[in-house]
Design a protein around this nucleic acid. Sequence first.
DNA 1: AATGAATGAGCCTTCATTCAT
DNA 2: CATGAATGAAGGCTCATTCAT
Lengths: 208, 208, 208, 208
Amino acid sequence: MPKTSGEETKKNILQVAEKLFAEKGFNGTSVNTIAKTAGVNKALIYYYFKDKNDIIVSLFKNIVNELVEYINQKVTSAESVNQDFSMRNKLKEEIKFFLNRKKIISIMLMEALKADNRSDYLFQCAEIFINHEFKMVMEAFKDHKRNKFPETLHYMVYEFFTGIIPMITFVALQDKWCEHFHCDQEKLLEYFIDSFEKSHLSSHLGLN
Amino acid sequence: MPKTSGEETKKNILQVAEKLFAEKGFNGTSVNTIAKTAGVNKALIYYYFKDKNDIIVSLFKNIVNELVEYINQKVTSAESVNQDFSMRNKLKEEIKFFLNRKKIISIMLMEALKADNRSDYLFQCAEIFINHEFKMVMEAFKDHKRNKFPETLHYMVYEFFTGIIPMITFVALQDKWCEHFHCDQEKLLEYFIDSFEKSHLSSHLGLN
Amino acid sequence: MPKTSGEETKKNILQVAEKLFAEKGFNGTSVNTIAKTAGVNKALIYYYFKDKNDIIVSLFKNIVNELVEYINQKVTSAESVNQDFSMRNKLKEEIKFFLNRKKIISIMLMEALKADNRSDYLFQCAEIFINHEFKMVMEAFKDHKRNKFPETLHYMVYEFFTGIIPMITFVALQDKWCEHFHCDQEKLLEYFIDSFEKSHLSSHLGLN
Amino acid sequence: MPKTSGEETKKNILQVAEKLFAEKGFNGTSVNTIAKTAGVNKALIYYYFKDKNDIIVSLFKNIVNELVEYINQKVTSAESVNQDFSMRNKLKEEIKFFLNRKKIISIMLMEALKADNRSDYLFQCAEIFINHEFKMVMEAFKDHKRNKFPETLHYMVYEFFTGIIPMITFVALQDKWCEHFHCDQEKLLEYFIDSFEKSHLSSHLGLN
DNA sequence: AATGAATGAGCCTTCATTCAT
DNA sequence: CATGAATGAAGGCTCATTCAT
């Protein structure tokens, strides 16, 4: 007997799966557990998803879409608001965006680390993010200083390994960090932002 | 004392397990597969290891030991060699050390990302590494500037998220990065070192 | 009375089921597959059929009815047409009849072969067929030679194992035979008819 | 704890599987049922067999081997014994051979009937059998009458559809036939042999 | 030190079937 | 007539682990 609309059931399954995958990893989570935690029949999961992998891929596709949406809305809002909207505020906002999605980010990282893995959603997300940053920066370079701009690949390496990676690792590990080093989240966030500014932002590849 | 053939078998199992865990993750690798790949009888694995978890823990303990050893030898060698031994060279050496252990590093990262996870080998390694860096830096601060030194926690956050994390993520993802972005390893390494220097090293939390 | 769209849907389901059962066997075919292949909702199948078994039973009943109809029309036409209508032509016609129903025949054979099986549609069909043959032959025996006629059971064994079985096995296996032995259907049919005439028909239990 | 040698366990599984496949068909038999009936752990079945299909293939390969062995021994014995060893006796012996293997024969037939099926063990067996018959017959044709011998393909069609098929169908269906038509096995066998002689053997494609 | 055999529990997936709409 | 949603049971298969030898 259908209690809820199909879409809601599916969304529920996805949320539960995201939580469990983040907790125990993809292979550490059984479809049975997902079903029980979500309070649905196991077979129903296979009514909505081709197989277990389809669940994680759905999650990945969702986060890609959300990221694109986020980026697009940032572009349009960026034009209207004050240009002086400080970098620090932008950074805080981004971290907030990622913190709200720390579960899927952890999952994406875990899966990306498997040498076997054929999915490259982490890199896809990174590209989306970096391309946007790239455009922003190019804007600032308009007429002058163009020759000082680094090669694209170099730029991507910089953005990925000293920008995106610290940020997403931060959201993925902050809870465990706090627990291990006995510090509170607020302070950690503050320190992280400070560190990130001093390292990644301050130099920004010698552009500023 | 001559290594018994047993010790070698055990080492072989560990090496195979490390490779497979790095490829498919801990839960994605079965003891059966380890046995077959290592060419040993499945039951023999249980002769050398209490259970499957004991294998990964052994790997983690090994890397902790190797790190300690590496650090200690750096300390002693640091005293003897030229102080001017440039930071860039030190960095290259460290990356080399990590690159040689990229499999276990990937595994450690994967496991650390699981929200459930009770093991904290990643943080243990980080602490060992950071404590050493800390001592080095303090040395340089000896008499003067002491008041300018940041709070320990702040320092650790900086070292961990903008130093260690980019470095180990680099060694863990470099192969996949090159494949995805069609660049060669040499160039990626060069760009990474450059990026790392410009971000993490150049500022070094405003100490220099 | 115009066929309701419902009747057509039912017929469609039956056709699809027949095709699939012949391809993968009854147990190898899921109701889901039938529904998808037929392009109807799964639950609709249960609107028309009590359960999965009801589908195959429907098919069996259909073929029984068709056989009865075929036999009856042969009887009436036999009276009107030339008695000399050669045996070979009769045989060809019968084979054509069976070839047009090779799918359900294959299914019937498969199911009959299961030692467990409680349905005896194969034997039912055989009885219908043999009884008719029996009457035809008896006709020819009318007044004379009656004593020479074999016992009924013996007659049935002969008709079944050397008449019906070769014929229905031929229609069931001809495609695969051609594929395996690289021969074309025309030639196989010709050879089969020849073989059948020489063995089953020529002797016809020593009656002729 | 291993009660028996592995080979015996494997043989036991095969025997049980053969019985169950013959009763309910391959798809109608679950590995679970095989395990329970054989009194072994389900996982043990996968220790000895790659998958469920490997079980049936093993059975098929066994029967092929047994057939080859049977044929070979017939050849050698044929030379030593009286040439007059009547055809009827030879036939009885063959039927006995097939009756002793009626389960696997039923299975082979069932599987061969599936239009989908990619395995052709039935045809393989048939070829082995027919090739042997062929040689025997050719022997008898030695110098004379050679031109009267039919084309090979024609010969195979004859042997397969009017020789092998009636015979194996007989062994596969005799129990059910007796039950359905209320006759005893002895009588059925007698009638069948008689019918087979009169149809297939008597003409033998017009060779005799 | 090493192995073949064995197991219970659990895995992912599909089954036939039902029900509310 | 027809459908989307739901389910309990069972499917094939693999898991980590153990034991006797």
